[in-house]
């Protein structure tokens, strides 16, 4: 019982270390590097890395610089350097926020993402706990089915789902999205949480059982507090997935006031042949910011959920 003297978080950390990165001894040895001379290292490591970073980030820079460029500079590459902006303007962003339905789309996206994430997490916690710890007959097969469900892509589900959504009478409503997004969120969250639950020591649960706790109490008092990192990972990842979702939102929503940001920007800001690049790029920029901010706060959770989903 010496374990209990430790902080629960330490136990989780340890457990995660064992569960996730099984053969990863902490290795401070610098490897072969000392044999590489500095010029060689610059050529082989830093130069390619710089090119990678430049290519991966350039579209964002281009998006941002276009969003604040006054219209007369936008396509006039001969008089103004395209890579810089003279006298940046907030005109595009003002237009976007006050003369289009953009704020409404933003609100819809937040609402739909939060609701479907909560729904998916609620379902996934119970399912993952049942599969991993209650271990009913057929739990392994159920786990496999969950994994297969994660591999079913939205591009083959959207037609029958559109048919169902129409039949049920929730076509063109936010409810249609809130109810259909968990189809890809629940399998993902369940799979991820199964990995986390697996890493929580059995002894904790057993000692709680001996003390007379019910399954419900074990789940809410022992397992969930220890699985908080997993819940955060699954939650922010699910939120990002629903924020980025496009094909369902495009198919199930037809009226402007119910659209989400990706659909709204694409279908309403592109009018005929006149592309308002400034407004489009501001729309893309502002629509990306929430997930980027979330991401910047939780980078490690992100990486662990992404690699976790692949590695399990």
């Amino acid at each position: 019982m010496a374990r209990f003297e430790k902080d629960p978080e330490d136990i989780v950390e340890e457990a995660l270390d064992v569960g996730r990165h099984a053969p990863a001894p902490i290795d401070d040895i610098v490897g072969m590097e000392q044999y590489n001379s500095l010029p060689r290292r610059i050529l082989v490591v830093y130069l390619p890395l710089a090119v990678f970073i430049f290519v991966l980030l350039f579209p964002f820079y281009w998006m941002a610089i276009t969003a604040v460029k006054p219209n007369h500079q936008l396509t006039n590459y001969n008089e103004y350097s395209p890579f810089w902006v003279v006298g940046p303007t907030l005109e595009h962003i003002r237009y976007l926020l006050f003369e289009t339905s953009y704020p409404g789309w933003l609100w819809n996206t937040i609402l739909v993402s939060v609701a479907s994430t909560v729904l998916a997490l609620a379902g996934a916690v119970f399912a993952a706990y049942a599969i991993e710890r209650i271990r009913f007959t057929g739990a392994r097969v159920t786990g496999l089915m969950i994994f297969l469900a994660y591999l079913v892509p939205p591009s083959i589900l959207f037609i029958p789902l559109a048919y169902i959504v129409f039949k049920v009478g929730i076509f063109d409503s936010r409810l249609a999205l809130i109810l259909t997004y968990p189809t890809f969120l629940i399998p993902f969250c369940t799979w991820l949480l199964m990995g986390y639950f697996r890493s929580i020591p059995y002894e904790l649960e057993e000692s709680a059982l001996v003390d007379g706790a019910s399954r419900w109490q074990i789940l809410t008092r022992v397992i969930l507090p220890l699985a908080v990192p997993g819940l955060i990972s699954a939650g922010i990842f699910a939120f990002t997935l629903s924020w980025n979702e496009f094909i369902y939102a495009l198919t199930f929503i037809s009226s402007s006031e119910n659209k989400t940001v990706p659909v709204g920007v694409l279908t309403e800001l592109v009018r005929g042949d006149i592309y308002e690049w400034g407004a489009l790029m501001s729309g893309a920029l502002i629509g990306s910011l929430p997930v980027v901010i979330l991401y910047s706060f939780f980078v490690d959770y992100y990486v662990s959920s992404m690699t976790g989903a692949v590695k399990e």
Partner: peptide
């Protein structure tokens, strides 16, 4: 991380 549709616009 950024929504595909929005980076595709860029």
């Amino acid at each position: 991380v950024v929504p595909t549709v929005l980076s595709a616009l860029a």
